[in-house]
């Protein structure tokens, strides 16, 4: 009996080993937000009143505790075509903010962007697509205060169908957008096919 069960054990081990090798050989891509995280799926976790906006002050560091993001923030301008510039790709742990726009925590829409990866591997916002409604985005500011945002939704948009007004439009409370690449990757079609955007609003100040 023992010989036969050992034989079975080895057969199972062979199957598990083969599966691990076969499955592991498939390409791993950055996390993609599920439909449940979209605005269309229903209200966010924090639907109570937003916190009062802060006076403007530049951001210095951004954290997303649930996904282990903790990165310095650099200023970004606009490229010649009107698109947001991106932080230098060589630094894998660096986020950027649109410095001619709203500062995070102030009234309006603060815009933050960072790389999902660079040539070497995952970068600061690799896990952005894994964010869920109710997760926190914390921004340390030069005035010593920390603006705490709650995630209202995480959505994916195709590059050629990017909703400017929804993402960059003005808000009458303190809001934030965190943007990175995502939405499928195609070497032939020139890389990532879209952007992942996390939407948040201010719920507290520390």
């Amino acid at each position: 009996m023992s010989g036969r069960s050992k034989g079975w054990g080895i057969a199972v081990a062979v199957c598990v080993g083969l599966w691990l090798v076969q499955n592991g050989s498939e390409d791993v891509t950055p996390p993609v937000p599920s439909a449940a995280q979209a605005f269309a799926a229903g209200p966010a976790v924090h639907t109570d009143a937003a916190a009062d906006p802060l006076p403007p002050s530049e951001p210095v560091r951004l954290r997303i505790p649930e996904t282990g993001v903790d990165a310095p923030v650099t200023g970004l301008g606009l490229a010649a075509n009107g698109a947001l510039d991106v932080p230098p790709a060589a630094d894998r742990n660096l986020a950027g903010w649109y410095e001619d726009g709203t500062t995070p925590g102030a009234k309006g829409t603060a815009i933050v962007a960072g790389h999902v990866d660079n040539a070497e591997g995952p970068a600061v916002f690799y896990t952005l697509g894994a964010l869920k409604k109710g997760h926190r985005i914390e921004v340390d500011r030069r005035d010593g205060r920390t603006a705490v945002f709650t995630v209202d939704a995480v959505e994916v948009y195709a590059n050629e169908d990017f909703p400017d007004e929804k993402v960059y439009g003005e808000a009458d409370r303190a809001e934030i957008r965190v943007i990175t690449c995502g939405g499928g990757f195609s070497e032939k079609a020139g890389g990532y096919q879209g952007n992942v955007v996390a939407f948040g609003h201010l719920i507290g100040v520390r």
Binding site: V28, A83, F162, Y168, F185, G194
Partner: peptide, 19 residues
């Protein structure tokens, strides 16, 4: 200032590969 427009090129695919 006018807000940005369009998508943001924030990745090159260097994280994609076998596990």
């Amino acid at each position: 200032h006018r807000p940005p427009s369009g998508h943001v090129p924030t990745g090159v695919g260097g994280s994609i590969g076998p596990d």
